[in-house]
């Protein structure tokens, strides 16, 4: 179940590399976030840890509803559908994304499985299996971890590849998704305050990004990063 969710997240991330319009991308992100939230919920059912439920709810609230809603509103202010622009083109980006996924998958899966198996280097290295509740509950940790790292990688690639401000912001969100996924896979047990803080932060980031992109459209009439190369040297 978790593995399937993870692969779905990966697929939706790949889609981000392929979409044609910005508002479509926002919808895809919203979908990814729902998947993430669902994952947390599944974990909650398996482990009965209260934190996970809150995480699921927060993810749903913030990432699936609030952020996309805000971004869509920003996009609506422009009044016309905006196209995504990439350095490598749509197919090229998709190919590179697939390539990254394959390479990253190979690298990370061996690493992640070793990680999950037990002591690697010396006595003080933790073995996830017997230290965390999560570790005990999960069979598919290594898949989750692999996917998380791939998503991180794809997010980074997205930010480099895309030439529209908003897509870069979505890349950032994707990276954060990856981090959250990883945290989940490793046994998400951060203190409640911290978790809350992180979510709050994400929220503010997106708001700031949205504000900036809105201002940018007003000031520059575009969200293309090509227009933003005045500050040099």
């Amino acid at each position: 179940m978790l593995d399937i969710l993870a692969w779905l997240i990966w697929l939706s991330t790949l889609m981000l590399l392929f979409v044609r319009y910005l508002h479509q991308a926002v919808w895809v992100v919203a979908g990814t976030s729902i998947l993430l939230s669902a994952m947390s919920f599944v974990l909650f059912i398996e482990t009965r840890e209260g934190g996970l439920l809150i995480a699921a709810l927060l993810t749903l609230l913030v990432k699936a509803f609030f952020v996309p809603g805000y971004l869509l509103r920003t996009l609506q202010k422009v009044g016309r559908p905006l196209e995504t622009v990439r350095y490598l083109g749509r197919m090229g980006s998709l190919l590179v994304g697939l390539l990254l996924s394959v390479i990253g998958g190979r690298l990370f899966s061996t690493w992640a499985s070793r990680l999950a198996l037990g002591p690697l280097n010396g006595p003080s290295t933790p073995s996830l299996e017997h230290t965390t509740a999560m570790g005990r509950a999960l069979g598919g940790t290594d898949v989750l971890m692999t996917v998380a790292l791939i998503v991180l990688l794809l997010g980074a690639f997205m930010m480099i590849d895309h030439r529209k401000v908003l897509m870069q912001a979505l890349g950032l969100v994707t990276m954060e998704n990856g981090v959250v996924l990883l945290a989940t896979s490793l046994g998400y047990q951060m203190p409640f305050f911290v978790e809350l803080g992180i979510f709050f932060d994400l929220l503010v980031t997106i708001v700031v990004v949205g504000m900036l992109s809105y201002q940018m459209i007003e000031a520059l009439g575009s969200m293309a990063t090509d227009r933003m190369q005045r500050l040099k040297g």
Partner: peptide, 13 residues
């Protein structure tokens, strides 16, 4: 200004 928006954007990103 456009430049300050650009700077802020790069900074945030």
């Amino acid at each position: 200004r456009p430049t300050s928006l650009e700077a802020a954007w790069k900074y945030v990103l």
